[in-house]
């Protein structure tokens, strides 16, 4: 089949960017969407043109590195799947597809379809862990965990950190991402000691990164390739209110450092040129 692509091209974080049209003839229905882009890029290289930059790594839907919008839908039309798992059999001959990077002010575009998602690392660094030094753990079966709790924790822990929830949210909120980690650890006894402080620290970090507030629209749940449910956001809100009213805000530890942003490196390396 033949596919027409309108792809967002942007040379670097400062470039305003624009759409460019490409034709891909002879698309095989068994190709994955990214393999179709590989074919396009190979063609562009042989013509001496700049190939389209996009992120991907495992190409089996688990690493969370790939992702862009296809006709406005994060990861494309297939539910519970990343774009690397979406095969061309879900499209038809003659389709015109518009590919755009995740759009959110907390996700600066680095090039074409590649964005900087280091803000998500900083949310985890703010409190998305249990403070357990290597070697300090007790015997694993000493604390029994009811199977339903373990299953609930696993459901929330399945988040792949791709950022589709942010890209689909009209408020560009990172609530599903943040809530998933808070719910994962909150369902387990190991997550209890730091539960209240975590809720405040992580949500405050998300706010500081420029992510919006959640207004329970639910777009995030609809596009999430890992099937994370909206209820993680209710849990996050519940923990946050409890922690705030409980006076836990004072217990949140100050951070010594945060993971740096990749986009900042570009701006530092190439400061804006002064007007003559």
């Amino acid at each position: 089949m033949r596919i027409t692509l309108d792809i967002w091209r942007q040379k670097n974080p400062r470039d305003p960017g624009r759409f460019e049209r490409f034709e891909v003839p002879n698309v095989n229905e068994h190709m994955s969407f990214l393999e179709m882009l590989d074919v396009l890029n190979q063609q562009l290289v042989s013509e001496g043109k700049e190939p389209v930059a996009f992120d991907s790594d495992c190409r089996e839907g688990i690493c969370g590195m790939c992702g862009f919008l296809i006709n406005g839908e994060a990861h494309g039309p297939l539910r519970n799947a990343t774009v690397c798992q979406t095969h061309m059999r879900h499209f038809k001959d003659g389709d015109v597809l518009r590919l755009e990077p995740w759009r959110a002010s907390a996700f600066p575009v680095l090039r074409d379809l590649i964005v900087d998602r280091s803000a998500l690392d900083r949310i985890i660094a703010a409190g998305g862990y249990t403070s357990t030094r290597a070697g300090s753990a007790a015997e694993a079966n000493q604390i029994l965990i009811p199977k339903p709790s373990a299953d609930k924790a696993m459901e929330a822990a399945a988040c792949i950190g791709c950022g589709a929830c942010v890209a689909s949210c009209p408020n560009a909120a990172a609530a599903l991402f943040t809530g998933a980690k808070i719910a994962h650890l909150g369902h387990l006894p190991q997550g209890q000691p730091e539960r209240m402080g975590r809720a405040i620290a992580m949500t405050s970090q998300a706010h500081a990164e420029g992510f919006g507030h959640c207004t329970t629209i639910g777009e995030c749940e609809a596009v999430c390739p890992a099937g994370i449910k909206l209820e993680v956001i209710s849990r996050m809100n519940k923990d946050f209110i409890k922690a705030t009213l409980g006076g836990y805000a004072n217990e949140v530890q100050t951070l010594a450092a945060l993971p740096p942003s990749a986009a900042m490196r570009f701006f530092e390396a190439e400061p804006p040129k002064k007007e003559p």
Partner: peptide
């Protein structure tokens, strides 16, 4: 033991 303490489900 270590992974359970970290909250690995």
């Amino acid at each position: 033991d270590q992974c359970v303490a970290q909250g690995v489900p």
